[in-house]
Computed example of a mutant assay.
Amino acid sequence: MTLAEELQNFKHQQDETGILTIYLNTDFGEGSQHSGEWKIRLKNGLKKLKEYVETSGTKEEQKAYKKLADKANQHIYDQQMNLQKSFIFMASADGEFLVEKILQVPVETEFHWESYPVLNQLEQMQESYPAVGLLMVQKSDVVLIDAALGEIRDEKHFSWEIESEDWKQYKGNASSDRIPSGSTQVDEVQQRFEENRHRWYKNLAPVIDKEAKKRNLGGIYLVGNKESVRDVEEQLHTTIIDIIPKNLISKPSHEVLNTVYGEEVR
């Protein structure tokens, strides 16, 4: 489901008893977050919302809110080791609607109890961080990251297989499966790839273009050393948003995303 389709689906969600929406800033880049500031914000936000529901809500609402507040608190703490810059939680009293997102972009901390999910910040992020691809190129290894709202939705890893002379898709780190052991063999593989990389990148380009179209990506960031990135850029028909001349293919995906967004801001 595309980002636009997700938001349209969210807009149709309604529960007269109540829907809890939480936008929680968990950006550890902020000095205050190192001491667990997000935990204090979460506690205070849920407490204030509880007071509001107890004052103006029915008994049914109060019961539903407590259940969802406890659920939200537990889910966020369960994910605390994976938190990046923000966490979004939306859930309905009837249990039919539940959304949790760990995002690479910050939000303003907000807590809402309404009959519908509050989507203002998500809609703003859709404009600021549309669906894009990050294509990391490191010689015979290529990784495509599909990201939207600062959230990594999917990854595809490609490596050139010397025996079949074709690009193969792998899960996880492909290079250890593809390159034979022994420094002489590795050198031979890399030398052969250097001699043929223009033609072999040309073979991969239609696959990347097809993925970008299928995923409705607004464009692609090319990440890697200048020589490899230039060769790939010449072959792609997909819009190139920007070029990041850094070798990040061995970095965790969330670090790559942070680096790319950081480069774009400068």
Rank of each mutant, 00 (worst) to 15 (best):
E5Q: 11
L98S: 08
K171P: 09
K66I: 14
H75K: 15
F89H: 09
G262Q: 05
K39V: 04
T26V: 06
A147W: 02
V256W: 01
E37F: 14
E60Y: 08
R153C: 03
V189Y: 07
S128Y: 07
D27H: 11
H157D: 15
T184S: 13
I179E: 12
F89R: 09
Q33D: 08
K139N: 09
P206V: 00
N247L: 10
F111M: 04
I19C: 05
D209N: 02
H198I: 13
G29C: 11
A64H: 05
T2A: 00
E155T: 14
S140E: 13
N25C: 10
A205P: 09
T21Y: 01
L217R: 04
E100D: 04
S228F: 14
N173F: 10
F97V: 09
V232F: 07
L68R: 04
L236T: 04
G31A: 15
I162N: 10
V260M: 00
G57M: 06
L257V: 08
T184L: 13
E264Y: 05
Y23S: 02
L98D: 07
L119W: 03
L257S: 06
W167F: 11
P180T: 15
K168F: 13
G262V: 08
Q84V: 06
M136F: 04
A72R: 12
Y201L: 03
G133F: 00
N25V: 05
D154W: 07
V107Y: 00
K171S: 14
I162F: 15
Q13P: 02
S86Q: 00
F158L: 12
K139G: 10
A148R: 01
S181H: 10
G150I: 00
I22M: 03
L98F: 12
H198K: 15
Q191V: 15
V118N: 08
A91Q: 07
V189K: 09
L7P: 07
K214I: 11
Q190I: 11
P206K: 01
G219P: 00
V265F: 13
V53R: 07
L222V: 01
N120T: 06
T238I: 04
K47V: 10
H237C: 13
V232I: 13
S176V: 06
L3Y: 00
D231M: 09
T109G: 03
K63F: 15
M136R: 04
K11C: 13
E127Q: 08
I243W: 06
A212C: 07
S175D: 12
Q138Y: 15
S159A: 10
I220T: 08
T109K: 03
N203C: 15
F111T: 00
M1T: 07
S175L: 09
Q138K: 09
A4V: 09
Q13A: 12
S86C: 01
E6C: 14
K139Y: 09
V137T: 09
E30H: 11
K168S: 06
N216M: 13
D27I: 14
L20A: 01
S92H: 03
N225R: 15
L222H: 06
G262N: 06
E6Q: 15
L42C: 08
L7H: 05
K66E: 14
Q13H: 10
V229M: 10
A69S: 08
D209Q: 02
L46K: 06
R192V: 05
N196S: 12
I240Y: 01
W113Y: 02
N173E: 12
E54V: 06
D154S: 12
K101W: 06
